[in-house]
Design a protein around this nucleic acid. Sequence first.
RNA 1: UGGGGAUUGGUGUAACGGCAGCACGACUGACUCUGGCUCAGUUAGUACAGGUUCGAAUCCUGUAUCCCCAGCCA
Length: 588
Amino acid sequence: MTDERPRHFIQQIIDEDTRTGKWGGRVHTRFPPEPNGYLHIGHAMSICLNSGLAREFGGKFNLRFDDTNPVKEESEYVESIKRDVRWLGGAWDGPNGGGLFFASDYFARMYDFAVELIKKGRAYVCDLTADETREYRGTLTEPGRPSPYRERSVEESLDLFERMKQGEFPDGSKTLRAKIDMASPNMNLRDPVMYRVLHASHHNTGDEWSIYPMYDWAHGLEDSIEGITHSICTLEFEDHRPLYDWYIDAINEGRTGDGSGPWGKRVHHPQQIEFAKFILNYVVLSKRNLIRLVKEGHVRGWDDPRMVTISGLRRRGVTPESLRNLCAEVGVTKFNSVRDMVLLENAVREHLNKVAPRRMAVLRPLRVVIENYPEGGTEAFEIPNNPEDPAAGTRRVEFSRELFIEQDDFMEDPPKKFFRLGPGREVRLRGAYWIRCERFVKNDAGEVVELRCTYDPQTRGGENPPPDAEGNVRKVKGTLHWVSAAHAIGAKVRLIDRLFTVESPGKATGDFLDDLNRESMQVLSGCRIEPALAERTADEPEWPDGIRRFQFERLGYFCVDAESKPGALVFNRTVTLKDSWARQAGKE
RNA sequence: UGGGGAUUGGUGUAACGGCAGCACGACUGACUCUGGCUCAGUUAGUACAGGUUCGAAUCCUGUAUCCCCAGCCA
């Protein structure tokens, strides 16, 4: 299984590193989410990239929670993230797994490193308020001014920092800051805050700490402690990289490879690499907007099948394989581009086409009576489960005198190119017989409620009839799906569509809710489906996540929703089939 | 000239001084017991202006445009 795809720039970096032996041949990556929300398709990219790299190079992959801000983080999110990462194949405990970690496990070590930096004169306790700190920092075009506390003695900072830890000071009253350069054109280097006082209960460490480290200080240390070689993050951290390096260099000051230096042995210094995050059109991905959709009830929760959260995609029936293929397909670059939603839809179709068993389901039933078929008669056909995969076998489908077909498959006055049923027209019923529409019945409202048809017994199994006396072979253009009225079971089907009607929700009005697709979830309750769908049968694939997925012939891919109960099935439409008829009809 | 990053068909991506290729979309057509799948074909691109070179998407200079940075968020 050699990957013939061109190698992206991160692979090239690692190729070079392994060639030169930069990390002793090691490759160790990580996915470092903050447990303050649900993962979405953008995160999937990072998970696939990092875990994929570890797999490709025979390295290790860590799942690490970057839980340095107790006021935003909850263990509920930890559990959902673990479930999502595992589902996607980011096995931190598999053959290429490096383990499961929490930044909060390193708080004590981070504290010791901070003390070391104070002693080295590289950090100081600052009494400026948040507002004052901002004021002193300067602007993008003007340099900042040094804090009045910048030249405070090492001893005093040491004492104050210790007391910050003991919880002596109120929230926001003091910070520990790195002493770098208040005039740096890179704002990140203007004496960044390393620790803030925060009397908050942490999901992991409880009330043990009253100071918490900031991202920049903490992240490199986490990577260093875990021996990460390639610390991959998104583009907006590009100008944090000098700080990432500064912190580790500051720690390594006075340290040597053999531990003979005054501060002991050097710590590991990983390489930060930035790439463009995954952006999709027709969706919103920011945490803020996702939360708003959930909290204001525009969707039915984080795992609503219309959501592009990983849990939403899973519930919708999307497979981890298709997500992984998508990530590989769009590549890894440093260019912020918007990926087209059709790429996701295609990736799903491509995978499901190969593996999803076919079934017949009629979403909007129209009764068909075969007038020349014996009253009460019944017979069964063996219909292939998957024309793409003969090994998938066949299933029995019952046929009888009264059937249901799709309302869309009949037109009272059809155009020439409509290959389905109309008065006097003939079609094939998939795997069964050819039928001809003799007449139709309307109700008082003028709606067609029943078709009266005849069938040709010579087309049993859907086969072509023998040539007539002149040797002419009769042909039909259309094949319809159907269910036997007496055998079909009822089901609820949710037609999932895009949540937004425009590529960039909110672009026109400023409020993304203005672009909500009001018909993003249409619920059909009177559907009639093949009895084989009632419960899992032996010919269905083993889905690793336990979600049963099917192709409803001619309609799309559907999965059994978690809300289903025996006798009360609910399906979600994952994605439609490509529909060139709809496209053509739409043009006219 | 505050700093950093980027720019190749409609969209995304390749090329690493030597034939601008691939995927998706769109459009034709073939095939078909899914108007699906598959197959064949068409369409369309190096942001701009100079320069170096036998030769430039690639190197140099300038210009334009877009993204990120002034949280005690990550």
